[in-house]
Design a protein around this nucleic acid. Structure first.
Lengths: 331, 331
DNA sequence: ATCTGCTCTGCAACCGGTTGCAAAACGCTT
DNA sequence: AAGCGTTTTGCAACCGGTTGCAGAGCAGAT
């Protein structure tokens, strides 16, 4: 059916090795054979089978792309950037949906069965254990949006969540809010924990300020709305730092449908600066996370890991900054 | 490094074939050897390499998932459903980002190099030619959200765009709008063309009604806002059928920031019923497209195609219905 | 013409599996 | 115990490639 090395070799009147060599970078072939082979290949429409090649070269150019949140539009952008970036380097993303999964063993086995060259775990909610397990299994791994530590066990690319928490608290305090709240994503997510830690750290530096915190079930619109509805029923704060834009938007929605208005009655600041945050509708004040850089850097790192398997894991953090829009009262 | 058939065979004291057979459905192995092999495999942590297997079985369990729009949140849901559905059947999506690509040759070659079992083209904007080219290349293909025809050249799963256009026009007319507009996605997209055709068809049945139409650059928020801004500067209609929810939301945004209000000054009806359409913020009246069914059906079809390569292509269309929310004036 | 050193080439083995085939092992019957 | 039909097994070839190695071919020097 498909045209293989052998067909090309026969047609060109050379050995299979000669054909193979014309298609491998840096192999030794004379100009004459190369020409013959290329012509035969052209005529037959031959292209080497990457998977068969991978059997000997141990490079499949497949990269596992593991995600566990398909309800946050930011991930559409994440997928866009990853697929493009990988494609540009001749790599292919094998998409793995881990929603609801808690065990790493299954996905690891599966990705090994496909002999992926590396794995990118793109999630701020999966426990660090997950990425560690990949490394333990000998698969190069980058944890994008993972928790930053000083001596990382795997490559981490993302932001300093703790300092974002501080930045958010500081901003709220500056604006004169006296009772401020943190509304996180899932309690178990390292990103929630770190953002909260930074938030409380900053609050502790301002004696007069009262702080409270709680968590949503997920980084999703529904979770944000649900949690804000709950908060509105109790002793609510004057302004909230929501752990993510889509949570913020859910919260805004709850606030509006309750007859309150933003920023007059309640202030909101998000995190991510997703496309939607800039829509007139939403006009969300938020902390910008440089997604494009984070993803390009992740790709660079996974490529480097594949080249040099026993490279020391490293952490790459990117600076965030506040995007002033309309959901906090002005200075 | 990795543990292979051979290792297991040696440890279990059997031939490589015996090991292979234990791991292939329906092969003939005695209970005794099976036990020995399974134990050895367990001890070594062996799992067959799917790609090596694919070399002989010609099944890699890889499915190409081709998309060209990463700006419409509906696709996040599409990816979620596809990845889960495929995973449940032991298949793996190889994600291909075709944004901006116009030639099919490159992607086809690439997917062939990875010997994918089949390809799902998930786009209402890629020309039919694209999916045809895959078929021509002998790759089983399903075009999800593709244009429906009576004698399809490839499998098509989606909705009847023409009848959705009619439904939208009919609804607008019922509500008493006399000058109605169609605001499509890209002019070249079959979905835009068909929705418009249906829309105008229905308008033609109502003599007093005036209709106009135009197109956005893409199925995206920005395109919707930009186009609505243009329309607002001219002789605008009383209500618009936007070819997609995210376009509608862009349009709503343009309308609001112009000081007009919906549905009092302008009515809007969308198409898709994406999650966001239900947010209080947005509260978009729209035509519901049964995404879940469309995607499950697409997966079923691609699986069937892989089983039976020369199956006749078929078309599967799903019924849509109107979801009444707050962007059209009441009956 | 011979030698030297280099570049090319093909053979054959290998990557990690599957599978047709013939022989071995098994369970029953007689 | 021999004969029979079924399973089960291992051998060897194959899937579509790559690659170490030894020898062939070639150009230039002597």
């Amino acid at each position: 059916m498909a045209v293989t090395l052998k067909h090309v070799a026969e047609r060109a009147g050379v050995s299979r090795s000669a054909v193979s060599r014309t298609f491998t970078e840096g192999a030794s072939v004379s100009a004459k054979t190369r020409r013959k082979v290329e012509q035969a290949a052209e005529e037959l429409g031959y292209h080497p089978n990457i998977l068969a090649r991978g059997l000997t070269t141990r490079r499949t150019k497949l990269i596992g792309l593991v995600a566990d949140n398909f309800h946050n539009p930011i991930f559409l952008q994440v997928f866009d950037l990853f697929t493009r970036g990988l494609q540009e380097r001749g790599l292919r993303p094998l998409l793995v949906n881990l929603s609801g999964e808690t065990e790493a063993a299954g996905p690891i086995r599966m990705l090994q069965q496909y002999s992926v060259d590396g794995v990118i775990v793109a999630s701020s909610t999966l426990p660090p254990l997950f990425a560690h397990a990949f490394r333990q299994a000998g698969v190069p791994v980058v944890h994008t949006f993972g928790r930053h530590t000083d001596a990382p066990k795997v490559n981490i690319v993302g932001i300093d969540n703790r300092s974002c928490g501080r930045m958010a608290a500081e901003t709220l305090v500056e604006r004169g809010y006296r009772h401020i709240g943190f509304m996180g994503g899932p309690e178990g997510a390292t990103s929630s924990q770190d953002r909260l830690a930074g938030f409380l750290e900053e609050v502790a530096r301002h004696p007069g300020i009262r702080a409270s915190y709680s968590f949503g079930d997920a980084y999703s619109f529904d979770a944000g709305r649900k949690e804000m509805n709950r908060l509105l029923g109790g002793d609510r704060a004057e302004a909230y730092f929501c752990g993510d834009d889509v949570l913020s938007i859910g919260a805004l929605s709850a606030i509006e449908s309750c007859g309150l208005s933003v920023p007059d009655d309640i202030g909101i600041i998000g995190l991510n600066d997703m496309e939607m945050a800039g829509w007139e509708y939403v006009d969300l004040t938020t902390i910008h996370q440089p997604i494009r850089q984070i993803i390009n850097s992740s790709i660079e790192l996974i490529v480097a890991m594949v080249e040099e398997r026993d490279r020391e894991p490293e952490t790459r953090l990117f600076r965030c900054h506040i995007i002033e829009r309309g959901t906090l009262r002005p200075l």
